[in-house]
Design a protein around this nucleic acid. Structure first.
Lengths: 174, 174
DNA sequence: CCATTATAGTTGCGAGTGCAAGTACCAGTC
DNA sequence: GACTGGTACTTGCACTCGCAACTATAATGG
């Protein structure tokens, strides 16, 4: 009855714990940012994620499929997300001329203005949470390790059904 | 129009990227595990998270509130999750004798059996994903950094509205 | 005691999401 | 140039989740 547990608490525990910490950290950070983004900027974390990826892309536009891959959303989820942002007037769609199946999402001037205001707030918020927690070296080490993990998961063959190419071009936040 | 962007791409970018990597890594890992857990064990990632926390607790039982804190779920979310697991016969509730408002959730024998089978599979899966990616030292370093972040977010005053005490007692996985 | 306040958990409801099916379009084949 | 297959999104539907309101029980205080 305890056989599996016995295995666990010896060697595997370490790895299990690492994974658990990763999930807990991400969930905690997301919740913290979400609260603040909503109260101060009336943006959901999900919306902000989409918007910041657009803001940091050349021309402030991206194909729907690209955006879906970068935001950890399925195509259908992204469609709805962009729908909402479109209703709010922050984003607009543009049909791709060369391939009329596809579409670009791009920031409207209003969306640009909102993000110009929102990004510094968010950056300040990140600083507030992370400052005095990591040294520059530690933060760099953490980023390096996570980058390796992310690339392993998404890039290089996508052995586990995860689609995405060089998301590194738009590293981004939440 | 580009003012906020200019700020971004210099100093703040690093921190923004770290946070972004954390989210992407967590999302990627979750999806990978979820796919496999569902196809091989018919368990959602959410269910598995609840079950493994129970499995690793003394007596295989935990108060609902404890469980909620550990699973990054709100109390209402946990209520529903336990409801589902109860319908599947994997978990049962037990009213706390000393405080009849509260309740314990505990694994049923069936639940125990399922987890005895599921945990080794999941551990193997983690190994498969992480092996040859990090050295023991790197993994340890990553865990240490993440633990610091997690404790900073949840513990010590919970400056950001996150509730949780010593979740370290049950570090756990997904 | 009874009243007040706080806590543990549950439920109504609305919002977001994924899966599978559908639509519109491209690309290669005969 | 219709036929077949594949791609880029979009929609129907069911499910999960969080928030706010609610119930039941404790704990405090007169």
């Amino acid at each position: 009855m305890m056989s599996a547990m016995a295995d666990l608490v010896t060697q595997d525990d370490e790895r299990l714990t690492t994974v658990g910490l990763l999930f807990e950290s991400a969930a905690g950070l997301r919740r913290v940012f979400q609260t603040r983004l909503e109260s101060e900027l009336s943006l959901s974390a999900q919306s902000f994620d989409v918007l910041i990826r657009l803001a940091r892309s050349p021309g402030s536009e991206l194909r729907m499929s690209e955006l879906a891959a970068q935001t950890s959303l399925t195509p259908s989820g992204l469609t709805r997300s962009v729908d909402r942002l479109q209703e709010q007037g922050l984003v607009a769609r543009r049909i791709c001329p060369e391939d009329r199946r596809g579409a670009f999402a791009h920031l409207t001037p209003t969306g640009q203005a909102v993000m110009d205001r929102a990004i510094p707030v968010h950056v300040a918020h990140i600083d507030e949470v992370l400052s005095d927690l990591f040294t520059a070296q530690e933060e760099e080490a953490l980023a390096a390790l996570l980058r390796r993990l992310r690339d392993h998961l998404y890039g290089a063959g996508s052995e586990w059904g995860l689609t995405a190419e060089d998301t590194d071009a738009c590293p981004v936040a939440d």
